[in-house]
Design a binder for these strands. Structure first.
Lengths: 254, 254
DNA sequence: ACACAAAGTATCATACAGTGATACCGGCGG
DNA sequence: CCGCCGGTATCACTGTATGATACTTTGTGT
């Protein structure tokens, strides 16, 4: 009902938070961005944004060229550390390899990052899709395997992610209305897996299952392949395998 | 009078700088680290370190599990942005592909990051070495292709990187004394390329050349392969190709 | 099982670092 | 030539980051 109205906005480490807002902003925009745009995009005073970018540049998390500011090489090193050190990624990788080998499909693991998800591991299948989404790429939560994340959220969190979307369109052109979507999500949660066709990528089918431990959703395992290849039998087999993989990863990761 | 002893240490955005020190620390340690270790490792008061980590966790640049703190998934997304958006990487990739195809060797590009370098692009050759160093990995500047970075620095910068090392050992067991090393670096700078054997990896030979524009060293192109494979003819060809690649990348990247 | 040590968390007064208004510089386009 | 826009420097004020202290939890050894 009545939420308090405005967010209280208690601020600890404001400058640090802002620094990462800047990094996120650069991260999202992908292209080099000018100072003024950074200031606008993050809502910072231009002088503040400038000081911030200076510092970030000194630390190599941001780089500046004639076209503007963008993410710097230090981010790469950090990501490498994540990939080499993260427990979930480490334990999932062999499982994904098995999946990809057994099914001939591309297998991947993603984790939630705010209102989207990030691909953290990926093993190519025998017929890789043309579409390339390398590790680190961000995807929406309402399409394809992302639905699994939404499936295990409560209504409030779901609403927070979906915002004021009344409906949305899939890559295949289908229109999904939010009430129907909610029902679909609940079904995914009870079934324990999701199957998606033409949602994020046209001509692709994916099967996704949660990686859960103690009720926490650590990530989502997924296999994806071209529609023609996924016969009913392969689909059935893949579904079992992916669900098992999700359970297996959760169990082994510690 | 000029106090030669202490660094002035003017501080702007102290908390932000510290935040990235924390991230760097986690990045370097690779393994999950406990709060107290972070505090020690970064020299921060434990309370400060804790507050910092909280904020970093909220932004997903740091993750916490039972074993301690480590880099979070947001770093991956940032790195992805770097790889997909960075001009140098983008223009270098096709060149590296050509190199790898023409020579059958693994080709890579690295950029300097403080006192080390980071691999930012890599294309496998026909006989990939067992040794795996994926994109994002950090390497020292005094071994293999890293020498090129040192070669184009002035003595002061060189000293800053090498610190108080009087000599060092290569992977092959050779001992290199700093004065000799300096001479070797100068020679690299005049020749415009470096050849390394058994320096970083036993049994490997690498050829490295600078990517320079307007006197700035943007990065280093490199090919590497097993010693047996690198006949004198291939070596000569590779040297020409790598040097050209360096020039080509610099020219095309804008 | 207990006690002690170590790690982690909360609280708080102080000073200093971060902030944004303002003003200054330089290049581009009209 | 002038005006506009993006970027940079300066500076006084105040809010926020800081670290000492004290408290709670976790884990280790006997």
């Amino acid at each position: 009902m009545a939420d308090a109205g405005g967010t209280p906005e208690r601020s600890t480490m404001r400058s640090v938070e802002r620094a990462f807002e800047v990094v996120d902003f650069l991260s999202d925009s992908g292209k080099p961005v000018r100072l003024a745009d950074v200031a606008r995009g993050t809502g910072l005073h231009i002088a503040t944004a400038q000081r911030m970018l200076r510092v970030l540049e000194r630390t190599n998390y941001v780089a500046q060229d004639s076209a503007g500011y963008s993410i710097g090489a230090a981010a790469l090193a950090a990501a490498h550390s994540y990939l080499m050190g993260n427990n979930l990624v480490l334990t999932a990788t062999p499982v994904l390899q098995e999946l990809a080998a057994a099914l001939g499909l591309t297998a991947s693991l993603s984790v939630r990052l705010g209102a989207s998800r990030v691909l953290v591991a990926r093993v190519e299948g025998s017929s890789p899709l043309r579409y390339q989404l390398p590790v680190g790429g961000r995807l929406p939560l309402h399409l394809g395997g992302g639905k699994v994340f939404l499936a295990y959220m409560d209504d409030v969190s779901r609403a927070a992610v979906l915002g004021d979307m009344g409906q949305f369109e899939t890559a295949g052109g289908g229109i999904v209305k939010i009430p129907d979507f909610m029902a679909a999500l609940n079904e995914i949660a009870t079934r324990g897996y999701a199957v998606s066709r033409n949602e994020r990528v046209v001509g692709a089918v994916s099967i996704s299952a949660p990686v859960r431990r103690d009720g926490d959703l650590l990530g989502v395992v997924q296999v994806i392949g071209p529609e023609e290849k996924l016969t009913p039998e392969l689909l059935a087999q893949a579904t079992r395998d992916v669900v098992n993989a999700g359970v297996g990863i959760a169990a082994r990761s510690r």
